[in-house]
Simulated scan of single mutants.
Amino acid sequence: MFELLPPLNDRNLPWMDTIHPIVVHFVIAMALISVVFDLIGRFGRRPALFEVSFWNLLVATVAIFVAIIFGQIEAGLASPYGEASTILNLHSTLGWSLAGVLALLSGWRYVIRSRDPLQLPPAFLGAGALLSVLVVVQVLLGNQLVWVYGLHTVPVVEAVRAGLV
């Protein structure tokens, strides 16, 4: 069965480059801008931004599942070493948790929007703040995996294949 899969390249991937970071940047941007639009809409008295925020949140929710699929595949091919495996496990767990949080917030936001699209309760803004903190922590973990441990970078893949790491 494994002979049906394409060979791994110099980044230890079956495709040209990592796809997870590409997709996850959409999630990061849309989730955070959703919170920003909520804040501007609420405190700037511009309720039209609530609609923009809702759609950004919805797209972020869909995109995070695509990011998780590629993230899980690429994590399985990463050959983490030392502390990188602990960080990778935490990053994966937080990613799945963020998917749940985004799904819950999207559902909650849909109900709020259905009842009164021009109002946003303060509790939802608090949940948005929590979402922002989780996203920032997740970004820091992902950055550490790439920029400190070099997962899926050519020099690290070569070192792992040579048995140096």
Score class of each variant (00 low, 15 high):
I33N: 12
A29H: 06
L49I: 00
A78S: 14
I28L: 08
D116V: 00
A29C: 00
T18G: 11
L90T: 04
H20Q: 10
L104F: 15
F2N: 14
E83R: 14
M30Y: 14
L164H: 13
A60F: 07
P21K: 07
V165Y: 14
R11K: 14
Y110Q: 12
F37L: 14
V66N: 02
Y110E: 04
L57I: 01
L57A: 09
V160Q: 14
I69H: 12
H25E: 08
F26K: 02
L49N: 01
I22W: 11
S92V: 02
R42F: 11
Y81M: 11
T86M: 05
G71E: 06
G41Q: 06
W55V: 01
N56E: 11
I64W: 04
I64R: 09
N56H: 11
E51C: 01
L125W: 08
S53L: 04
V154C: 05
R161V: 00
V101K: 07
I112Q: 15
R42W: 00
F2A: 10
D10Q: 14
T153I: 02
G41D: 10
R115I: 07
V139D: 05
V59W: 12
V133F: 15
A127R: 12
V148I: 09
L134K: 01
F50G: 05
L90K: 14
V52G: 00
V66Q: 05
G95D: 04
V27A: 14
L118A: 14
S85N: 13
V101D: 05
N143Y: 14
T93I: 03
L140V: 08
